[in-house]
Design a protein around this nucleic acid. Structure first.
Lengths: 339, 339
DNA sequence: TTGAAAGCGCTAACAC
DNA sequence: GTGTTAGCGCTTTCAA
C-alpha cells in the first residue's frame, strides 16, 4: 500500500459538498455560504489537502512559474539580481525556475527549451547570447520575455543606462585629471550591451576632450568557469600603464586590480580603476572599488512587472525598453592623477 | 483568434497515427517502426510541438522538478552551491525551483508550501530554521528532502565535517603560537550546525591544550538583509583583543576584518582571523582570508544523488548522513603570534 | 506495431 | 449557493 495525496475529491466527500464548491473555497471565488466554507476548510485541514499545481495549470492553460536564465551565480551582481527577482515574483504569487548557462550558448538553448516544456508563464533573461533563432522561437511561441540587464530589440528590456554609466565613470576620472584612459571589456557580456558600453565610453571620452585609442581597449576573454579575464599584465607591459582603466564589470575590475598588484603596480597610485555593477564585494574596504552601481531593486521590480503585465494582462502592447539611472560610487580605487 | 500551442493530438493527426504512438516516439519507449517514427518526428518539427510538462506530471504523478531552499544568494558560498546543484540536477534532466528565505522562518514555511503545491519531486534545503512542524509535514507528505550544508536527524544530510573543520582552524592557529582564541558565531546559521561547530571549536581548543572562555564567544546577530553581524568592536574593546578569532563563516570573518581595521587594528598583525566556507571572495589577494573550504562540488553531487535516489528508486532505505572533508586554505589573514 | 480508452486533479461554464 | 459536466494534454494498460 502506497501513500496517496488527498485530492479535491477527498475534500469534497469528507465535507459533503461537490468539488466545484471546494474549488470555490480554495480559490476564494464564487459564492459559498459561511457554514459550508468552514466545513470545507476543516476538511482541508484534517486531510492536509494541497492543490495540485499541475492539474490547475493544465486546465487554466497557464502556470504560476517564471523562468529565469542567469549566466553565472558566482557573479555577485547576478546572484543578487536573481534573489530579488525571485522575491518580487514571490510577492506576486509566482515561483521561479532558475537556470544557469555558464554563458554557454548551447546551455542557453537547452535550458530555455526546458523552461518552455514547463510552460513557464514568462522568462527573464539575465544573460543572452544574442541567438536570433532562440528569440524567434520565443516570439512564435508567444512567451513573454524580458531582458534584464541585457538588451534585445525584439523583447521588453530593462537595463541600466549604460551610456550614462560610462559618462559617470569617465567624468569622474576626467575630473581627477586622468587623460589616458583604457577600457577592459569582456566577451561574456551580452553583445549589445558590450557594444553600447564601449560606444558610451568613446563618446564620454570625446565629450571630455580626451582621446580614444582602439589600442587601449582590451578584450578580456574568460577562462573556463567563473569570470576570469585574460592576462592584463602582458597587455599593459606592451602598451605602458594608462592613467586609469574603466572595466565593463566589477569582477573584471577586481581581477585587474589583483593582477596589477601582483606585478608590483599600485591601485590607485599608479593607475585608477573603475568598475561597473555595484556588487557587494566592491564595497568592502579592502577592495574599495569605485564603480557604477546598477539599481538592482528597480531592475527586479521592472522586470517582473513587464513580464506579469503580459502574462496577466495579455496586453498586446508595444515592446517597452526601460533604461534606469546608474549611480557613481566613489571609493578608493580612484584618486587624482599624480603629476 | 488566439494562439494555441500544438498538442500531441495535432502531431498525431498530421502524421496520421494515434497519440499513443506519438507518445511512444517522444518518450523513446515502446516499439515504433522506423517509417512511422520519422513521419512523427517530421510532424513534431513542422508544428514545433513541445510536450506539456503539466499534463505529463499529472498522469505520471510526479514532476521533474527539484525544489531548492536557500537563505540568501548574497552569500557567495550559498550562491555557488545553488548554481552547482542546478547544474548537476540539469544533467539528470531535472529543473530547479529556487526559493530564498532571507533566513526568515515564515518565508521558509510559505516557500516550502509553494514547492509542495508545485509537487516538486524533492527538496534540497541549504537553509533550515529547524522548524519541527515543517519537518513533520515534509515527512508525512512523503517528499524526499536533503539537508545540504545543514543538519537534521530526520532527513538525509550532506555537510562538511564541521568538527574536523574547526580542528583544522584551531590547529593552524595553535601552530602559529596563538593561545587566546575567540569565536564568532551567527544566529542565522542553522542551529544544529551552529552547535556542532561551537562544540568542535571547544574540543579542538582542548586537544591543543588551550583554554575555552565562554566570554570569548561572540554571538553575532544579523541586521536586516545580508549577512551583517553585530558590533564586534564593542565586544573586543570590552574584553581586549584575543590572539586570533575563528568565525563561523567567511562573510562574518570579512565583516569582522572590516570592523577591526576601521578601528585601527591590523589583521593579521594584531589579530589573526580564520573563516569558514571557502567562498571565492576569501581568495582575493586584497582579502586573503585563511578559511576552511567546504567541498562545494561534492556537496552538490551528493545532495542531488541522495534526492534522486529516493525520487527514482523510491527506495525505503535508511536515512543517510554524509560528512565531507573540509580543507584548510592558508592565506594572509593569519600569521605567527607576535611575541 | 499500432490504436482505443480510461483517467491524472483541477477549473469554469452552466444548470438548478 | 451549490452541483453537474466537459474537458486541459498526456501516459499507460489492454486489445487488435
Amino acid at each position: 500500500m502506497s501513500y496517496r495525496r488527498p485530492t479535491i475529491v477527498d475534500v469534497a466527500s469528507l465535507s459533503g459538498v461537490s468539488k466545484a464548491t471546494v474549488s470555490n473555497v480554495v480559490r476564494g471565488k464564487g459564492s459559498v455560504s459561511p457554514a459550508t466554507r468552514s466545513r470545507v476548510l476543516t476538511a482541508i485541514e484534517t486531510l492536509g489537502y494541497r492543490p495540485n499545481a499541475s492539474a490547475r495549470s493544465l486546465v487554466r492553460q497557464r502556470t504560476d512559474v517564471l523562468g529565469l536564465v542567469a549566466g553565472n551565480l558566482g557573479n555577485a551582481f547576478e546572484a543578487e539580481l536573481v534573489e530579488r527577482i525571485e522575491q518580487v515574483a514571490s510577492e506576486r504569487r509566482f515561483t521561479t525556475l532558475v537556470c544557469t548557462t555558464s554563458r554557454n550558448p548551447e546551455d542557453e538553448t537547452s535550458k530555455v527549451a526546458t523552461l518552455l516544456e514547463q510552460r513557464v508563464a514568462g522568462i527573464a533573461m539575465l544573460q543572452f547570447s544574442g541567438d536570433r533563432h532562440l528569440m524567434a522561437q520565443l516570439v512564435t511561441e508567444h512567451v513573454p520575455v524580458v531582458m534584464v540587464s541585457c538588451w534585445d530589440d525584439y523583447a521588453d528590456c530593462v537595463a541600466v543606462d549604460d551610456a550614462a554609466g560610462l559618462e559617470l565613470a569617465v567624468g569622474h576620472l576626467a575630473r581627477l585629471g586622468h587623460r589616458r584612459i583604457a577600457y577592459v571589456t569582456d566577451e561574456r557580456v551580452e553583445s549589445t550591451t558590450r557594444r553600447i558600453r564601449l560606444e558610451g565610453f568613446q563618446r564620454a571620452l570625446l565629450r571630455h576632450g580626451l582621446e580614444f585609442h582602439p589600442d587601449w581597449v582590451m578584450h578580456g576573454n574568460g577562462g573556463p568557469g567563473g569570470d576570469q579575464p585574460g592576462n592584463f599584465v602582458d597587455f599593459f607591459e606592451r602598451r605602458g600603464l594608462p592613467d586609469a582603466v574603466v572595466a565593463t564589470n566589477d569582477n573584471i575590475a577586481i581581477t585587474l586590480i589583483e593582477q596589477l598588484e601582483s606585478q608590483g603596480w599600485r591601485v590607485p597610485d599608479d593607475v585608477s580603476i573603475v568598475g561597473f555593477d555595484g556588487s557587494r564585494v566592491a564595497g568592502l574596504h579592502r577592495i574599495g572599488l569605485t564603480t557604477i552601481a546598477q539599481p538592482v531593486e528597480q531592475l527586479a521590480q521592472f522586470s517582473v512587472e513587464l513580464l506579469l503585465d503580459r502574462v496577466v494582462g495579455e496586453s498586446r502592447r508595444e515592446r517597452r525598453h526601460v533604461r534606469l539611472e546608474p549611480k557613481l560610487m566613489v571609493r578608493t580605487s580612484t584618486s587624482a592623477r599624480a603629476k
